[in-house]
Lab assay of single mutants.
Amino acid sequence: AEKTGIVNVSSSLNVREGASTSSKVIGSLSGNTKVTIVGEEGAFYKIEYKGSHSYVAKEYIKDIKDE
């Protein structure tokens, strides 16, 4: 089941290729951006990003809701 969340950062949140802080950064999301969460892996959520799937750190996503 998909969930949505809100990016909870003051500046921007790195979007990564994989579920690791050493993964390549492929983009960023600004605070209060709504994201669609399709899964989770460790400390990361797998999200829909620009037509494919990428990862963001869970600690920076708030207001998780089931869609």
Results as ranks from 00 to 15, higher is better:
residue 13 L to N: 03
residue 22 S to T: 13
residue 5 G to P: 02
residue 6 I to R: 08
residue 28 S to E: 11
residue 46 K to I: 14
residue 2 E to P: 15
residue 27 G to T: 02
residue 15 V to N: 01
residue 29 L to V: 08
residue 15 V to A: 03
residue 49 Y to M: 02
residue 29 L to F: 03
residue 10 S to C: 15
residue 60 Y to A: 09
residue 13 L to K: 02
residue 56 V to S: 00
residue 20 S to P: 01
residue 64 I to E: 08
residue 60 Y to M: 07
residue 9 V to H: 12
residue 63 D to Y: 12
residue 58 K to T: 03
residue 30 S to P: 15
residue 6 I to G: 04
residue 1 A to K: 13
residue 25 V to K: 05
residue 55 Y to A: 00
residue 33 T to M: 09
residue 24 K to V: 07
residue 20 S to C: 08
residue 52 S to Q: 13
residue 18 G to M: 10
residue 35 V to P: 01
residue 29 L to Q: 01
residue 56 V to N: 00
residue 34 K to A: 07
residue 1 A to E: 10
residue 63 D to P: 12
residue 6 I to E: 04
residue 22 S to F: 09
residue 26 I to K: 04
residue 26 I to D: 01
residue 23 S to D: 06
residue 19 A to G: 05
residue 30 S to W: 09
residue 31 G to F: 11
residue 66 D to L: 13
residue 38 V to L: 13
residue 33 T to P: 02
residue 1 A to G: 14
residue 43 A to H: 09
residue 20 S to F: 07
residue 13 L to C: 15
residue 3 K to F: 11
residue 29 L to Y: 02
residue 15 V to I: 07
residue 6 I to A: 04
residue 26 I to L: 07
residue 27 G to A: 05
residue 4 T to V: 12
residue 24 K to N: 08
residue 49 Y to P: 00
residue 54 S to Y: 13
residue 52 S to L: 12
residue 9 V to T: 13
residue 58 K to Y: 02
residue 61 I to T: 01
residue 20 S to V: 04
residue 36 T to S: 09
residue 34 K to N: 05
residue 31 G to N: 15
residue 67 E to H: 13
residue 10 S to G: 11
residue 36 T to I: 14
residue 47 I to W: 00
residue 8 N to G: 09
residue 66 D to V: 14
residue 18 G to K: 13
residue 62 K to T: 14
residue 1 A to Y: 15
residue 60 Y to N: 08
residue 50 K to G: 10
residue 29 L to D: 01
residue 56 V to T: 01
residue 20 S to K: 05
residue 2 E to V: 15
residue 42 G to D: 06
residue 26 I to A: 04
residue 16 R to S: 06
residue 41 E to G: 03
residue 64 I to G: 07
residue 66 D to A: 11
residue 50 K to Q: 13
residue 55 Y to K: 00
residue 19 A to W: 05
residue 60 Y to R: 04
residue 66 D to S: 12
residue 56 V to M: 02
residue 12 S to Y: 13
residue 14 N to R: 09
residue 47 I to L: 02
residue 27 G to N: 02
residue 15 V to S: 01
residue 28 S to W: 10
residue 11 S to L: 09
residue 21 T to G: 09
residue 1 A to H: 14
residue 33 T to K: 06
residue 48 E to L: 15
residue 58 K to S: 05
residue 14 N to F: 12
residue 24 K to F: 06
residue 33 T to W: 05
residue 50 K to P: 02
residue 20 S to M: 06
residue 40 E to F: 05
residue 62 K to S: 14
residue 38 V to Q: 04
residue 47 I to Q: 00
residue 20 S to I: 04
residue 67 E to P: 12
residue 3 K to I: 10
residue 4 T to K: 09
residue 38 V to E: 03
residue 39 G to E: 04
residue 12 S to K: 13
residue 27 G to C: 05
residue 26 I to Y: 02
residue 20 S to N: 08
residue 55 Y to Q: 01
residue 2 E to Q: 15
residue 14 N to S: 14
residue 51 G to C: 07
residue 38 V to M: 07
residue 38 V to F: 06
residue 7 V to R: 01
residue 9 V to G: 11
residue 8 N to R: 10
residue 56 V to H: 01
residue 11 S to W: 09
residue 18 G to V: 06
residue 50 K to E: 12
residue 24 K to S: 08
residue 16 R to T: 12
residue 63 D to T: 14
residue 67 E to C: 14
residue 66 D to W: 15
residue 48 E to C: 14
residue 46 K to G: 01
residue 52 S to D: 08
residue 1 A to L: 14
residue 29 L to M: 05
residue 3 K to C: 13
residue 49 Y to W: 10
residue 18 G to D: 09
residue 66 D to R: 06
residue 24 K to C: 08
